[in-house]
């Protein structure tokens, strides 16, 4: 991989996609890595899909092309699947096994896609798929930090835990800081636990 890294973040309005993106940007600035992002705002508060593209490195401008994402951080499984076209052979997917049913599924006119099949489809085609099975002990709104924690453990992730911690400290209000950092650390421990269990 070149010195460029592209990270796609996907979720639903209210899940903290923008917040997660802000942290990655802040961390990159602390690490002195050129960074740019692209997001679509507007209807996100109304429960629609929200995605953000983050590009790190020279000569990138925040845009991710098809088969261009080195990392996909998915906060919701359907939205994670919706970013399939950005993945390539060397991509790493970190996805929270969290579902928010869209109205069409709720109304019974569409089916929530088979997530197991999705994972099976991905596994042979990309470098690594981490589906976080069961996040407990933290508020739902901090699941994004857990996902970031898991991603930061992947060796090719361009930002160190230290700079991410600094970014969190800089961005999060004092009364939420402890729980936010805790969620991040729980995410970092997640992979260890999994390996230990095996």
């Amino acid at each position: 991989m070149s010195n460029k890294t592209k990270i796609q973040v996907a979720g639903v309005g209210g899940q903290g996609v923008v917040f997660l993106t802000n942290l990655i940007v802040e961390a990159a600035l602390i690490a002195d890595i050129p960074v740019a992002t692209s997001e679509i705002h507007g209807l996100s508060q109304r429960g629609g899909s929200v995605t953000a593209s983050i590009t790190l490195g020279e000569n990138t401008y925040g845009f991710i092309e098809n088969a261009g994402a080195d990392f996909l951080l998915g906060l919701e499984l359907l939205e994670t699947q919706r970013c399939l076209n950005y993945l390539h052979k060397n991509s790493v997917v970190v996805a929270d096994n969290f579902k928010i049913t869209p109205f069409l599924v709720n109304a019974g006119t569409a089916k929530y896609p088979d997530t197991e099949a999705f994972v099976q489809l991905l596994k042979p085609q990309i470098k690594q798929v981490i589906v976080i099975e069961n996040i407990t002990g933290i508020k739902d709104i901090l699941r994004n930090m857990f996902v970031l924690g898991v991603a930061s453990k992947v060796s090719s992730f361009p930002l160190s835990a230290a700079v991410i911690r600094k970014a969190i400290t800089k961005n999060v209000a004092d009364y939420n800081l402890e729980t936010t950092l805790e969620a991040f650390e729980l995410g970092r421990n997640y992979c260890n636990q999994k390996t230990n269990n095996k």
Binding site: V12, G47, L78, Q81, L84, P102, L104, K111, P113, L121
Partner: peptide, 11 residues
């Protein structure tokens, strides 16, 4: 595969 996913319009 992406095309066939259910949409999530704002509500």
């Amino acid at each position: 595969l992406v095309k066939n996913l259910p949409l999530r319009p704002p509500t």
